[in-house]
Design a protein around this nucleic acid. Structure first.
Length: 822
DNA sequence: TGTAAGCGGGG
DNA sequence: GTGTACGCTTACA
């Protein structure tokens, strides 16, 4: 018979000595099913200068011990493959089980044969060979088989093939979060119990499910709270809740490194069996020692630690400084954690159970936020999984280099390309020594400018790689030696006759996105949602942009430092040539960074600038393109502090629509008071709107108010993070002094905490006058301190551009000259 | 100036 | 899990 199903979660098992792929997923009617298929693992060995008959004999009789079934060779076949641009003969050697690959290949290597693709995961190999993408509909021929070893029906597949690119839409997701007993900052799963477990679920019909389990009875009005007798019962109920709810996906925030390992440790301690896997296997939770390494897996249920995906992949386009649940939720969801001090939980648990209600609500909220994040990013995660063709479990735990590499590995099959091996220890060391020059940044002349035109190269690095055929296979070919030298790197050249595999792979990615953008435009015109397409576009763009970094990444299979160097060398050359061309055309260039060029319109009209752009584009190879980014009526570039050199990556622009675009200014930094931030922004705004005199007046007014004690203390708060244990501080800054006083008052102070303080009036060291908000009355602040350490630094560089010195705006107008200071 | 250690995130 | 580690900041020689 034939079934259609969406595979979600994968593993393998060896049954009666035979290796099987297990694919857990659901049918179109949401029924869960497990499809299994027999599949032999293999690797490749290069066969040259070798006695083939002898090799056959040795392979045939090879049998190496493991802790279970011995490792054996099943069969082999001869095959021609391309390795780094060179075709050779290889033997594809099939073995009896996944772990035999590493054992047998080691043995074969010791015979002097080079082995390849010996560390490709069995499941990954299977998915690529069958060309099926997780989360998309797959057609399976075979039959259901009797099997009591799983919680869902098993379907033994004879044939598996992709059916549609449509991804699964309806998913049942359960988010979990635990609260534990923790005194001070110490978290100790061996010693301290779990106090609460929060669940927030959403089913295929968007129906919510809420539950909080705890084991202390107290007065409350929460309809989702379930109280059990003790921690053992809590763990048993945890198991039941998951088994009853039957989610497709389990999620949590840092659940790989905290929640699941903690639960596992507690369950082991009490010998509670957490056999929640769909094959009755137990929860396998990651190491507690290293938060990046631990993975928590439940067979058959896809576990997504949404923190990992955000941290490694999605966080790149977030502004947040911290990846805490609170700040990520604020930015992505516009929601936040409940304002409860979790460090009070242990005390409430011991002494004031009536306070536990708010902790339960807090617990549920955390689970809710993790669920929301998971839902919000689901399309993005699925699109990555589809494009790369690997399980969501793995995709969401990868960093850019692995995403790129696995995408290349998928394409390698189509091109009959063999993957180079990963570097060994010494190779990595060697690669780590190799450096390369980065992008070109034009040093601006400080000043206030009119009518700035900005142009930038669209996807500069990807288009350079494809246009110049950069890749390890095309480097230093014999046919193009004197033809295609890389600018500034003339010892390198790339073939102009044969396209390199890597640049072909990247080109497909770039072209796919071009097509997709057209589709998005059409879809928008029809008034339909583009959220899935946007996610796909984001994934394609992210992958394309990561290629260049991948080439210079020490752990890459297709590592090529010459390629990375050549890419940036070409980029520098293009941007410099663009600058030269602009100058030739009579434009003044004021700034350029990596892929962008800022020029002044001067007495020319916009069309002339566009003509210049078109002329540049006429000469550009491949898919390279200089694009018009925008016209800005005003812009300011400031000098590096204490110098007349222009600061790079620090400027403010005013757009045609009157919106400010600020880059590099300190305004966003938290160790600046609101007063300084607001002043800086206001001054930039006035200056960019040609209100230089008003800006000066405005600053003078603020200085006056500051001196007169009229500034509200809220605007003077300076926030600084405590980054380490207090006793480890050698120099006691104001924030450390405040933290030490907090400690004396019995407040727990731990690294990560942000101290908010105000510098008060009086004598003595600054740190002695650092106070908490509630310790100072309005007006009781050190005006000189704020003037010299906050106001002046915030606006000084801007005024210097206008030829206004510090004294002009900061001196006390009610007194003579600099009086009052000295 | 270079290398080692330590952190992130969770309670 | 076909195990083996990321990238940045800070401390200290």
């Amino acid at each position: 018979m034939e079934i259609h199903f969406f595979p979600l979660e994968f593993e393998y098992k060896v049954r009666e000595g035979q290796p099987y792929v297990y694919m857990y997923g659901k049918l179109e009617d949401n029924t869960k099913v497990c499809v299994i298929q027999h599949y032999l693992p293999y690797f490749y060995a290069k066969v040259h200068n070798i006695h083939l008959e002898q090799l056959k004999k040795r392979l045939k009789s090879l049998e190496l011990p493991t802790n279970s079934e011995p490792a054996k060779v099943i069969k082999w076949e001869s095959i021609e493959k391309e390795l780094l641009g060179k075709k050779s003969d290889f033997w594809k050697i099939y073995v009896n089980q996944p772990k035999a690959v590493s054992i047998i290949s080691k043995e074969v290597s010791s015979w002097g044969l080079d082995c390849y693709e010996k560390d490709i995961f069995y499941i990954h190999r299977y998915l690529r060979d069958k060309r099926i993408s997780p989360m998309t509909l797959v057609k399976v021929e075979g039959d259901f088989v009797e099997d009591k070893k799983t919680r869902v029906p098993i379907f033994l597949a004879e044939n598996v093939e992709p059916l549609s690119k449509e991804s699964v839409k309806k998913l049942k997701i359960l988010s979990i979060d635990i609260e534990t007993y923790a005194k001070q900052k110490s978290i100790n799963p061996e010693k301290d119990p779990i106090l609460m477990i929060g669940f927030y679920g959403i089913d295929e019909d968007n129906k919510p499910f809420k539950k909080v389990l705890t084991w202390k009875r107290f007065e409350n009005k929460l309809d989702y709270l379930e109280v059990v007798s003790d921690e053992v019962e809590l763990l048993k109920r945890f198991r039941e809740v998951i088994l009853d709810y039957k989610p497709d996906i389990l999620t949590g925030y840092f659940s790989d490194g905290f929640d699941f390992p903690y639960i596992k440790t507690r369950a082991d301690k009490y010998k509670v069996k957490l056999d929640i896997g769909l094959d009755y296997s137990e929860l396998s939770a990651g190491s507690k020692t290293d938060f990046r390494e631990g993975k928590s897996k439940i067979n058959g249920i896809l576990h997504i630690d949404i923190f990992k995906f955000i941290r490694y992949i999605f966080g790149k386009n977030l502004k947040t400084e911290s990846f805490s649940l609170d700040s990520v939720s604020k930015e992505l969801l516009n929601h936040q954690k409940h304002d409860v001090d979790i460090s009070d939980l242990a005390n409430a648990w011991d002494n004031n159970p009536e306070q536990l209600e708010e902790f339960c609500e807090y617990n549920l909220q955390d689970a809710y936020l993790a669920l929301q994040l998971c839902q919000k990013l689901m399309f993005d995660m699925i699109e990555f999984a589809k494009i790369i063709g690997l399980p969501l479990f793995d995709i969401t735990r990868m960093r850019f280099s692995r995403l790129v590499e696995n995408y290349i590995l998928k394409r390698a099959i189509e091109d009959n390309v063999l993957a180079p091996n990963k570097p060994g220890r010494s190779e990595i060391e060697q690669r780590n020594e190799e450096t390369f020059q980065g992008a070109f940044v034009y040093e601006p002349t400080p000043g206030l400018y009119d009518d700035i035109m900005i142009f930038d190269f669209r996807s500069l690095y990807p288009t350079i790689i494809t246009a110049h055929n950069i890749g390890p296979e095309s480097l230093a070919c014999d046919c193009c030696k004197e033809k295609a030298k890389v600018p500034e790197q003339e010892e390198y050249w790339f073939c102009t006759n044969k396209k390199s595999f890597l640049s072909k792979v990247l080109e497909r990615l770039v072209l796919r996105r071009v097509d997709l953008k057209r589709l998005i435009k059409k879809t928008k015109e029809k008034g339909e949602s583009t959220s899935i397409l946007d996610a796909r576009s984001y994934a394609l763009k992210t992958l394309a942009n990561s290629f260049y970094g991948y080439l210079g990444f020490f752990g890459a299979r297709w590592y090529c430092i010459e390629c990375a160097r050549s890419t940036t060398a070409y980029a520098r050359d293009y941007i410099k040539r663009t600058i030269e061309k602009a100058k030739e055309k009579g434009f003044e260039v004021i700034y350029a960074d990596t892929d962008s060029c800022f020029l002044l319109l001067g007495d020319k009209i916009k069309d002339e600038a566009m003509t210049f752009m078109n002329e540049i584009n006429f000469d550009l190879p491949g898919h390279m393109e200089l694009e018009y980014e925008g016209h800005y009526p005003k812009g300011i570039f400031v000098a590096i502090k204490g110098s007349d050199k222009g600061a790079k990556k620090k400027y403010a622009l005013l757009s045609d629509e009157g919106k400010m675009k600020i880059t590099g200014f300190e305004m966003v930094r938290r160790n600046w008071s609101l007063l300084a931030k607001e002043l800086q922004e206001k001054v930039l705004e006035l200056v960019l709107n040609d209100k230089k005199d008003e800006a000066l007046e405005y600053v003078k007014e603020v200085v006056e108010k500051l001196r007169n004690g009229e500034i509200k203390k809220k605007k003077l708060i300076i926030k600084t993070q405590i980054t380490k244990e207090l006793q480890n501080y050698i120099s006691i800054g104001p924030h450390v002094a405040v933290a030490l006083r907090l400690l004396e008052q019995g407040v727990k102070v731990s690294p990560g905490m942000v101290v908010e303080y105000i510098i008060a009036k009086g004598t003595g060291l600054v740190r002695e006058r650092a106070r908490l908000l509630e310790e100072v009355s309005e007006g009781d602040y050190d005006a000189d301190y704020y003037l010299n350490n906050q106001l002046i630094p915030a606006v000084n560089s801007i005024f210097l551009v206008l030829g206004i010195s510090e004294e002009e705006f900061s001196s006390d107008s009610s007194q003579q000259g600099l009086g009052g200071f000295f």
